[in-house]
């Protein structure tokens, strides 16, 4: 199978054939090897999106999965995220939805937006 590596902007064109061990050529780093291996068996992606918040100054907060999740669960995760509303002013790296869908990855905040713009009179947390 021909794969374009998405790990870095180099976009290496990798050829991967199943087997024991699989035959992987064209990668220029270890991460590329791992990516191709995953693509062969169980493709995974990091999901970057936003979550709804209760704060009018920032109606949505950017988030991502702390680790890659199976590609075929992306829309399941989006449904989970869409049903969620953030009520605390979390900062970058803090978990918003821990272990989402039980996949072993947290949905974490990727912005300090909510920490920066606390309106007067509102207590933090």
């Amino acid at each position: 199978m021909d794969i374009v590596c998405i790990v870095c902007p180099k976009s290496c064109r990798i050829t991967a054939a199943p087997g024991n061990p699989p035959v992987i050529t064209g990668n220029s780093c270890k991460r590329g090897y791992q990516f191709a291996l995953d693509e062969l068996t169980a493709p995974k992606r990091t999901v970057c999106t936003t979550v709804r918040t209760v704060f009018p100054d920032a109606p949505v907060l950017p988030v991502k999965t702390s680790a890659e999740i199976p590609k075929d669960r992306i829309f399941d995760l989006m449904r989970e995220i869409n049903a969620f509303t953030l009520e605390t002013r979390v900062g970058t790296g803090e978990a918003v939805i821990p272990d989402a869908l039980g996949l072993g990855a947290d949905v974490i905040a990727t912005s300090d937006l909510l920490k920066e713009t606390i309106p007067e009179g509102e207590n933090d947390r």
Partner: peptide, 12 residues
């Protein structure tokens, strides 16, 4: 309208 599938399933 709002992202996240609209305001329908808004919990607040």
């Amino acid at each position: 309208g709002k992202t996240k599938g609209g305001a329908d399933d808004e919990t607040v």
